[in-house]
Nucleic acid binder design. Structure first.
Length: 158
DNA sequence: AAGAAGATTCGCT
DNA sequence: GCGAATCTTCTTA
């Protein structure tokens, strides 16, 4: 998995300017889904990470496909395993995540939830976030070193 | 009230 | 590599 943190007081965060109709689910308290449409075409999913009324979330940028491969291939219209969930918009399409999922509690929803993955040794790398211009120097992107299912061209140092 | 930019992806060159 | 698709927000008039 690959993700990026968007913190309280972070210029690059959608919550930086306060609560709006679009980012309202960033303020629901931890472990809620914040889903938004980007460039009118793709969806991105975040997991909220702070107490209620504090706008912060973690953007899921890529996943390693494990289960439900035929269904995800059908939704994506792509055969390549590597391209199924590589990128925030792509993984939303593969998992059928859209605005209906916005605001769901990941602890109590039967639509969208988190599960523990395979137990294995992982090295977590840090790098600057991808695709932003504000606060672009901050190393708030987290990824599994050596994993083949990462977005972005650059896999920087751990 | 209108226009530009954005946590993107896809298709064409 | 470049541009289109097309929605929300922020800036400018």
């Amino acid at each position: 998995m690959e993700c990026e943190a968007y913190l309280h007081g972070d210029e690059a965060s959608h919550a930086y300017g306060g609560k709006t109709p679009r980012n309202a689910s960033m303020f629901l308290g931890p472990f809620h889904a914040y889903v938004y449409k980007i460039y009118g075409t793709s969806f991105c999913v975040n997991v909220t990470s702070e107490a209620p009324d504090v706008g912060a979330a973690v953007l899921v940028r890529a996943l390693e496909p494990v289960d439900g491969l035929p269904l995800m291939r059908r939704r994506r219209g792509v055969d390549s395993l590597r391209e199924l969930c590589r990128g925030p918009g792509r993984l939303c399409q593969a998992l059928a995540i859209d605005l209906r999922c916005n605001g769901l509690s990941l602890l109590s929803s039967s639509e969208l939830w988190l599960e523990a993955g395979e137990a294995r040794k992982r090295r977590i790398g840090l790098s600057p976030r991808i695709g932003i211009s504000q606060a672009a120097h901050r190393r708030l992107r987290y990824y599994e070193v050596g994993n083949d299912f990462l977005s972005g061209a650059r896999h920087l140092s751990p």
